[in-house]
Every structure is written in structure tokens, then in C-alpha cells.
């Protein structure tokens, strides 16, 4: 499996990850090498094999639908890059 620069640009956009122009070729070649490694999976017939969802085949533990956390908004927003009146600030999204 060989990825082109344009494939990397598309994947990077899906991941919302900036990859600079001069990195694209290297990244494309690294990713292609990793996909070549991954291709070894194709040699195995997996017809009818159940995909493994959990190492111990456990199902999800449920809890009561009750509030268990205190409101720690100010404490947690202390590590945010920009907040105002308890809200996270981002660039304008609606013109």
C-alpha cells in the first residue's frame, strides 16, 4: 500500500492535524511502510472469527444514573488557554 502526498493531506485534514508541505513526502513514505507491515494481516483467513471487543470478554459495567461529581468548573478551567465567565473561548465561528 503506497500513499501519495494528496492522501496524507486528506488524512491530516480528517485528523485536524497540520502537516507542513516539506514534511509531506517523508510522512507519506513512513505511513506507506507501516501499511506494508500491516498488510501481513491479509494472509490470514478470518472468515467467521468474532472480532475481539475486550481482552477479558467483559461487558460494560453500568452504574446508577445519579450525579456523583461536584461541580469543579473553576478548578478545571484553571488550566484552559482562554476562558471568560465560565466559558471556553475560541475564534469566532459564526459571522
Amino acid at each position: 500500500m503506497s500513499l501519495e502526498r494528496s492522501d496524507v493531506e486528506k488524512i491530516a485534514h480528517l485528523a485536524r492535524l497540520a502537516v507542513s508541505e516539506n514534511e509531506l513526502d517523508n510522512v507519506a513514505s513512513d505511513l506507506s511502510n507501516i501499511l506494508d507491515l500491516v498488510e501481513q494481516m491479509n494472509a490470514v483467513n478470518t472468515d467467521g472469527v468474532t472480532p475481539m471487543a475486550h481482552p477479558l470478554h467483559m461487558s460494560q459495567r453500568l452504574r446508577d444514573d445519579a450525579v456523583t461529581e461536584d461541580n469543579q468548573r473553576d478548578h478545571f478551567q484553571g488550566v484552559a488557554p482562554a476562558t471568560e465567565n465560565g466559558l471556553y473561548l475560541v475564534p469566532k465561528v459564526i459571522e
Binding site: A12, R16, L17, A18, V19, S20, V27, L31, L35, V90
Partner: peptide, 23 residues
């Protein structure tokens, strides 16, 4: 904001794995 914060914050190996996983 998303793209550059992530592009600057993550190193090469983390980027590779995010991209492989996204693909």
C-alpha cells in the same frame, strides 16, 4: 486553531500514529 495547536503540540511519532489510526 485545531490544526496548528495539534501540529505544533505533537511530535513526529505521535503524528504518524494519529494519521495511521485516522486512515
Amino acid at each position: 486553531l485545531y490544526k496548528r495547536s495539534r501540529g505544533e503540540g505533537f511530535g513526529a511519532e505521535v503524528k504518524r500514529r494519529i494519521l495511521i489510526g485516522t486512515y
